[in-house]
């Protein structure tokens, strides 16, 4: 199934990726091939099959409600692109 340009652009936006015109045409063709591969799944009837989300047949463990972490802000912000007075900075968000 070939992928529409509009879909491609919408997906790129949802994923916050910028695609150049060249990348768009490459993506359109490679994604169409991948979707063809994926569509092989449609050849089997799975109406009565329960989806398997996880290979592990187990249940969630719970953690005691204890504070185990201490303030490591300075160390953790050393690798941040931009900070000021303990805040991470990003270009202005317009609401």
């Amino acid at each position: 199934m070939p992928i529409e340009l509009e879909d491609l652009e919408n997906i790129a936006h949802l994923a916050r990726l910028h695609l150049s015109e060249e990348e768009k045409s490459e993506a359109a063709s490679s994604m169409s091939n991948i979707l063809k591969l994926i569509d092989q799944m449609q050849s089997v009837d799975t109406d009565n099959v329960t989806p398997l989300a996880h290979p592990l047949d187990s249940v969630q463990r719970l953690r005691d409600d204890e504070v185990t972490e201490t303030n490591k802000r300075d160390a953790l912000q050393k690798i941040a692109p931009e900070t000021d007075q303990g805040l991470f900075l990003v270009p202005k968000v317009i609401e």
């Binding site: 997906i11 949802l14 990726l17 990348e23 994604m31 991948i34 994926i38």
Partner: peptide, 10 residues
């Protein structure tokens, strides 16, 4: 990027 796109699509 390709796989992010495929996954987002799916």
């Amino acid at each position: 990027k390709r796989r992010i796109m495929v996954g987002t699509y799916a």
